[in-house]
Each structure stands twice: as structure tokens, then as C-alpha cells.
């Protein structure tokens, strides 16, 4: 059944910015984002508690223009605690109009952190994460 799926926007601000290394940019102050941070930081919508880890709905988006010369090239979804770390990587072009992807991923049971990386063609990679507790693992 296509359509009819509603996912509450439970989080628009990532819960963690403790990425190591300078290659992944994260905001210095989550409460006071600069304009550059605001347009690059991925937004993750994922319930804090997932009942069924076999199908966890996730929405990733970036408030970034999709101009011919300045756009989001890719959005990648990962959980390093899972056996299959990378869920998927969405390669975009300016024709997408907006950097947005909704899908359903598999998560193993217990507490984990879902990471999303957005890559801008001019300003590099930006990482955000969201903590999640999975009641029944789905790997």
C-alpha cells in the first residue's frame, strides 16, 4: 500500500555531536546554529523507542538549496552497533529539488545510535545522530 504512512517528526535537532575528526563537521553549539550549520546539518526523524527493529521508519532531510552549483550530493544512514552498519546511501542531484529520504531500516535490539551524513558539493560532510532504543531486534 503506497501512501498513508505518517511519521511524527520527533526530532529535528540531532542528539549528539561527538564525532571524531575534522572530516565530519558537526555544530559547535546545538542551541545556536550558524546559518552554514543550519543548512547543512541533517535532520533525523526516528522514534526514540522502536518496537520492531525489523522495520524502523526513518526520515532524513537537509534544509539546503538544491541549486545547479550548490547542492547536497548524498545522504547516508548508519548504525555502527548493528551487524549491517550502512543501511543505504542516497545520491542526489539538483533535480531532486529537496534533500529528503524516507525509508525503513533494520536495527538490532537494545540501545544504539543512528548516524546520518549529508555531503554538500561545496562544504563537505555533515554528521548528525539520534539515539534509539529498540525493543525487539530486527537484524
Amino acid at each position: 500500500m503506497v501512501g498513508g504512512l505518517t511519521i511524527p517528526l520527533l526530532s529535528v535537532i540531532p542528539s549528539s555531536n561527538d564525532a571524531h575528526g575534522a572530516v565530519f563537521q558537526t555544530p559547535k553549539d546545538l542551541e545556536n546554529l550558524t546559518e552554514l550549520e543550519r543548512i547543512h546539518l541533517p535532520k533525523i526523524s526516528l522514534p526514540p523507542v522502536v518496537e520492531d527493529g525489523a522495520s524502523a521508519s526513518i526520515v532524513c532531510s537537509v534544509d539546503h538549496p538544491m541549486d545547479e552549483d550548490h547542492y547536497i550530493k548524498s545522504i547516508q544512514i548508519m548504525n555502527f552497533a548493528d551487524p549491517i552498519v550502512i543501511k543505504g546511501k542516497f545520491f542526489l542531484t539538483p533535480v531532486n529539488g529537496e534533500a529528503y529520504l524516507s525509508t525503513q531500516i533494520r536495527l538490532s535490539g537494545g540501545e544504539g545510535t543512528v548516524w546520518v551524513i549529508a555531503e554538500c558539493n561545496k562544504h563537505g560532510k555533515w554528521a548528525a545522530s539520534k539515539k534509539v532504543t529498540v525493543a525487539a531486534g530486527g537484524c
Binding site: 524516507s102 525509508t103 525503513q104
Partner: peptide, 13 residues
């Protein structure tokens, strides 16, 4: 790592 029977949503201009 993707669920079975997935529904993908994305945007186009």
C-alpha cells in the same frame, strides 16, 4: 540493513 517490503519516499523538482 533495509527492511523487507520497503516504502521509499523522496522528492523531485
Amino acid at each position: 540493513g533495509i527492511a523487507d517490503d520497503p516504502l521509499f519516499t523522496f522528492k523531485l523538482k
